[in-house]
């Protein structure tokens, strides 16, 4: 359950932070949430990964559907990907990996500094 709360928190606060700060605020939030929720390193990664994936995928899907896939199709061609969907997934995977590593880092740092609860 803690994992789910952590993911929800990460998604909401990353989304808010990205309104003001640059794209990497996703990493900062993933890092902090994984630490504050006392996740294990593996779960820290999972939390950040899923948060990044879900956030970036849903924001881009929302925009892409309203846009009639015009831009995602062009972006896919730009990156030599087979289609709009694959572009959305690949782009979101970048967010997922960044979130994942940040969450893992957060959890590890927490574990090093505050090993037990």
């Amino acid at each position: 359950m803690r994992l789910v709360y952590c993911i929800l928190t990460t998604i909401v606060f990353s989304f808010l932070a990205e309104q003001v700060f640059a794209w990497w605020s996703l990493a900062v939030i993933s890092f902090l949430s994984a630490a504050l929720f006392y996740l294990s390193p593996a779960r820290g990664f999972l939390s950040g990964f899923l948060s990044g994936l879900i956030l970036w995928l849903s924001v881009s899907l929302y925009a892409d559907i309203a846009n009639g896939h015009i831009l995602s199709t062009r972006m896919a061609a730009l990156f030599h990907l087979p289609g709009a969907t694959s572009f959305l997934v690949v782009a979101a995977l970048v967010g997922a990996l960044v979130g994942g590593f940040a969450g893992w880092s957060g959890a590890l740092v927490r574990k090093y500094m505050l090993p037990a609860r």
Partner: peptide, 21 residues
């Protein structure tokens, strides 16, 4: 810069203009 570009909040998707809006 892939991070900046692929981020849908501030990156590419901000230029995906909604149709008819």
């Amino acid at each position: 810069a892939l991070g900046r570009l692929l981020d849908p909040v501030n990156g590419w998707a901000a230029q995906a203009e909604p149709m008819g809006q």
